[in-house]
Design a binder for these strands. Structure first.
Lengths: 125, 125
DNA sequence: ATTTCATGAAACCTTTTGGTTTCGTAATAC
DNA sequence: GTATTACGAAACCAAAAGGTTTCATGAAAT
């Protein structure tokens, strides 16, 4: 399986991996704990986790004899960024609007806050 | 190549296909026109187009002897939706900031542009 | 009518992907 | 100390992905 794969798009292209990411949302889980949710071998799940790890979508932490995986949502930023390019071409304006109203108002505020912090970061350099 | 593939995540996992989608943003293009942008055969590009078509990310229109492809951004909604699930875990602002810093100014500019679009959308309401 | 152009279908090839089973090893439990 | 647990590495495999070349066909141009 891909050893040099750092591509987040590739990482989330597999349904099993997408499911793993959702599983890890909020809680840190061990390999065995994760693999219990899937009808495949632990080893197979472990490989998926490696791929997710290479793409920085999760981070690894060794705790005793377990390997705990944790979600790192920041890696999804690249996808979000790519998607946003198409915002202007989105023909289904109602869909966008609905989305914005329901889910992205908070995000907008967060982004504003970021912008501020970014500016501060930039000024330091 | 995948004959029964309807998965938009799979469709956008390939960099060539992502580039094609950007190419098609705004303008309708023929197979030959599209393939001129890539270092591979026209046939290969044609296959990518079929995959994009199966995932509904583009629509086909026959015009005389050419086949014109057109972006259908609505297909990306599923991805957007999936991503939005992680919004709540994104409040790990340091992670995002880290990403931004790593990506330097470009990301910052993109963020600004994003913010702008958000404001515009919000003003419409 | 003939040639040229735009394209898809088919056959083919190599690499990658997603899975398996087996085995080794380090940490914990007994 | 021995057994058990948690895991990864390795070898292997079938299928899918991504590309190629060749050929057939329909539309447009000459």
């Amino acid at each position: 399986m891909g050893e040099k794969n750092h591509d987040i798009f590739q990482a989330i292209s597999d349904p099993t991996r997408r499911k793993i990411l959702k599983l890890l949302a909020g809680k840190e889980l061990s390999v065995t704990a994760i693999s219990e949710h899937f009808p495949m071998s632990r080893t197979a799940v472990s490989k998926h986790l490696r791929i997710l790890s290479k793409s920085k979508a999760v981070i690894v932490e060794k705790v005793g004899r377990e390997t705990r995986y944790q979600l790192q949502p920041g890696a999804l930023y690249e996808v979000r960024e790519w998607l946003s390019y198409f915002d202007q071409y989105w023909d289904n304006k109602l869909a966008i609007l609905k989305h914005l109203v329901e889910k992205e108002e908070d995000a907008a505020n967060d982004l504003t806050a970021f912008k501020h912090r970014m500016d501060q970061e930039n000024n330091k350099r």
